[in-house]
Nucleic acid binder design. Sequence first.
DNA 1: AAGACGAAAGTGGTTGA
DNA 2: TCAACAACTTTCGTCTT
Length: 307
Amino acid sequence: MEEFEETYHKCPICGGTKLIYDPTRGEIICAECGYVIREREIDRGPEWRAFTPEEREKRSRVGAPITRLTPDSLSTDIDWRSKDAAGREIGLKKKIEMLRLRKWHIRARVQSSIERNLSQASIELERLGSQLGLPQYAMDRALEIYKKALETGLVRGRSIESVMAAAVYAACREKKIPRTLDEIAKYTRAGRKDVARCYRLLVRETQVKVPLPSPIDFAPRIGELLKLSTQTIKKAIEILKKAQEMGLTAGKDPAGLAAAAIYIAALLSGEVRTQKEVARAAQVTEVTVRNRYKELAKKLKIKLPIR
DNA sequence: AAGACGAAAGTGGTTGA
DNA sequence: TCAACAACTTTCGTCTT
């Protein structure tokens, strides 16, 4: 486990020691050469500990209440004093959260079951978030969403796991953190189908507003996976913007569109990547990249360099 | 040998009766 | 709940580099 932490103190490409953590993408990037040292890929195992010290600290501030260490004592310790166990003042945000929780408790008189549920859910969230390399604020939001779901009675009859996965997905969408449903479902015992259903329910039944996924959000991630220059990525985004204006993006898989734009931009700037490479980075097939890029090139009248 | 291309059949999800 | 439908995937043969 620990060896990963050692590995990532230095950039394996240029040897630079200044590593930057980008919380929106959950990536560690070398400040000197831009190499993505650690990114979220689909086949990541449990070696999620390899984060920067800042991140570790941030993570640890999740704090005692929702840590796996104290699942059972959560119920009695978490609430309604504005101080934590050590007597320190806790954050305003958390305070508000707790007040809400408490209000609900009193009304519903089912304290223990709610709390048991939440504690279980928190453990699940911690696990999921870690494996997906999510930043803390996304996990906070996921928990809020989950609580909302709980208040609405959504969880009843469904597994905590699948609802939490749905909440995490919703939080990611809301915060524009590009994680696909597949990625999230991969780390959940509940099937993808279940998670998708819960997610839809969640959006309908609670007032969680989720912006539509835009291919533009996917482009930087794909570009970085392929180690493309920022100019190329910008070019891809330009293409996508134009495509959106012309209404070419409706109903299409945003990842596929982003992949196509990246592919075109790469060709145009001479940083050629094969369709296969692009497809793998975007988690779509070659065929989709092909179809999309043909379509984009034609409709936007982009002249491609002849090889 | 590897990449690009496109056709055809299969798959999962959405929509509307 | 079921069938139709569009988008995406899988697979495969062919052409190009």
